[in-house]
Amino acid sequence: MKNIKVKVSSFTKEPYGRYQKIDGTSSGEQFRKEEIVKHLQNPEVETLTVILDAVNMDYTSSFLSEAFGGLVTKDKISDSDLSKLIIEADDPLDKSRSERYISSFKSKRAKKNIEF
């Protein structure tokens, strides 16, 4: 089993925006698609640690919501695959916000009685 670590700073120094088409290659959507989903869906990966480390700007809510909440709403990642995800951050508020996006959308999914 593999334990993977992904640093946002290795992806971009300026994480910004929600959608790749509108906001460009530093968007939450692009980060989610390129750096998170492939590892969570890989059965050989035991844990994926995403590190919200020092970058040139603060993490925007649109970036975090799309990167993490989008795992539930867009990619339909299963609860068992989501359990592989560990979020670390230089700023505890960034970690809390990211985890809250996931749990909020998981809660909405549960209310609709949808299981992935």
Rank of each mutant, 00 (worst) to 15 (best):
K2E: 11
K2Y: 10
K2H: 09
I4D: 02
K5C: 08
V6M: 05
V6R: 06
V6W: 00
V6C: 06
V8T: 06
F11N: 04
K13M: 05
E14F: 11
E14M: 14
E14W: 15
Y16R: 11
R18Q: 09
R18I: 06
K21Q: 13
S26L: 01
S26C: 06
Q30H: 12
Q30D: 11
R32F: 05
R32P: 00
I36G: 02
I36W: 01
V37L: 00
K38E: 11
K38S: 10
Q41N: 11
V45I: 04
E46R: 04
L48N: 05
T49L: 00
T49E: 07
V50M: 05
D53L: 07
V55Q: 01
N56A: 15
N56F: 13
Y59W: 06
T60R: 08
T60I: 10
S61D: 08
S62P: 05
L64Q: 04
L64F: 02
S65Y: 07
S65Q: 11
F68T: 02
G70P: 03
L71I: 02
K74P: 03
K76I: 08
S78T: 01
S80D: 13
S80N: 13
D81A: 03
S83E: 09
K84Y: 01
I87K: 04
E88Q: 09
A89D: 02
A89R: 03
L93S: 14
D94N: 10
D94C: 05
K95Y: 09
R97W: 10
R97A: 12
E99F: 06
E99C: 08
I102S: 01
S103W: 09
S103Y: 12
S104L: 11
K106T: 11
S107V: 08
S107H: 14
R109C: 01
K111N: 14
I114L: 13
F116E: 11
F116Y: 12
